[in-house]
């Protein structure tokens, strides 16, 4: 398989992988590294790729596992630390500007969700996957997905309302 062929296969879902990685890892740089890692792994398996019936789902699962591993590993400790440092350092100006933008509230609210809800919400509401696909990707039962999704959506709604009310008061 040639590089261009590979890129043609990967291109349609490359951004999805990145967005999923960013949802889990929060930092853009980390997400970029993760996506790159996944694409290189896929490239090294390119000969086997024809035998996978759904490369996108396969890559998505790989990304999910990679990011969760990363969060579990020691590096993740550093990552979190770095990230809070980062937000602290630039809190004065940037976050004030962002706070006015209620769209970015949603992003922050989503960052506080448990990982599973984060992933379900990302796959369903951002990437608009069907339930059957999410089942396979996350290896979850349909009911569990619906429960997680409903909880995630309601949590986001509640927190959004809270912030909204603060804004008025």
């Amino acid at each position: 398989m040639k590089q261009t062929e590979f890129l043609n296969i990967v291109l349609p879902f490359r951004d999805k992988l990145f967005r999923m990685a960013k949802r889990l890892l929060v930092s853009t740089e980390e997400a970029e590294d993760a996506t790159q890692e996944i694409l290189i792994k896929l490239w090294s398996k390119k000969n086997k790729m024809e035998s996978y019936n759904n490369v996108e789902a396969f890559a998505m699962t790989m990304t999910k596992n990679f990011c969760l591993d990363r969060l579990k590993s020691k590096q993740a400790g550093n990552l979190k630390l770095v990230h809070t440092n980062y937000t602290d350092a630039s809190s004065s100006l940037q976050s004030e500007l962002e706070a006015k933008d209620s769209i970015s509230w949603v992003e922050r609210i989503m960052a506080e969700l448990p990982e599973q809800q984060k992933m379900v919400l990302q796959l369903r509401d951002v990437e608009q996957y069907e339930y059957e696909e999410i089942e396979k990707l996350l290896d979850m039962k349909p009911t569990a997905i619906r429960v997680a999704l409903s909880r995630a959506r309601k949590t986001v709604r509640e927190k959004l309302m809270e912030k909204h009310n603060y804004g008025i008061a």
Partner: peptide, 17 residues
């Protein structure tokens, strides 16, 4: 609106294959 916006984020890094 956030979901719509979030879907527009792109992966811009070059992958060294």
């Amino acid at each position: 609106n956030y979901f719509t916006k979030a879907k527009e984020e792109r992966f811009t890094k070059q992958v060294p294959l």
